[in-house]
Nucleic acid binder design. Sequence first.
DNA 1: ATCCTATATCGATTTAATTCGATATGTCTA
DNA 2: TAGACATATCGAATTAAATCGATATAGGAT
Lengths: 107, 107
Amino acid sequence: MDNLNVLDIFKALSNETRLNILKWLREPEKNFPAQQAHLPKEVSIKGGVCVGDIQEKVNLSQSTVSHYLSLMQKAGLLEAVRYGQWTYYRRNEETLAKISKFIEEEI
Amino acid sequence: MDNLNVLDIFKALSNETRLNILKWLREPEKNFPAQQAHLPKEVSIKGGVCVGDIQEKVNLSQSTVSHYLSLMQKAGLLEAVRYGQWTYYRRNEETLAKISKFIEEEI
DNA sequence: ATCCTATATCGATTTAATTCGATATGTCTA
DNA sequence: TAGACATATCGAATTAAATCGATATAGGAT
């Protein structure tokens, strides 16, 4: 949570599926039709999509997708919110903005 | 030369030494004292540093450094200018700018 | 307590990246 | 043309990433 772990971020971005996940999470409603179906109306995890919905879309094993999401979270690209038995992942815009700035200013 | 090869770019950026090389090439005169010592005064390869000077600084084998530079060039992060027996590598600012924009707008 | 479902972790296998020393290529100089 | 450098490429060894199925954990429902 502290400073950017630039190497882990670039490693996480070096994979087509993971890039797609990030891209799709820009517009969760559009890309994940069943989005937040498990949440009661009064709860909302803005921009969050659960692991199962993501897995269905990427067509890789459950363990692989879980691993990918965990990698991205550790790199700071995603944040996770747990609701009941579901984990909702959403973009961490702060890191995305920082890494873009980092390329402009420090690389 | 065509469009961004985003995956190759991120892979190239996923390595500390390669990141350092890019960073150092922002200020070649400062980071490579012997910079362009082989060039006659009337020739200038703006921002370019030869493989040997880079190798000396990173302290990896000649073949590894050559390979790194080639990777970065193929990814579009560097461009190479040959002068005599030397190859001068310099930053390709266009790609750097594009990748930063890509993160902002498309990931 | 038991079962079901969602997600995480483990262990193993396959595939890709790192890194080297040796060799090839290309250019300059004598 | 031969030798000396600078750089590139090759082949091999080691290390890391990708990916899976199986199993563990944790919450919800009966």
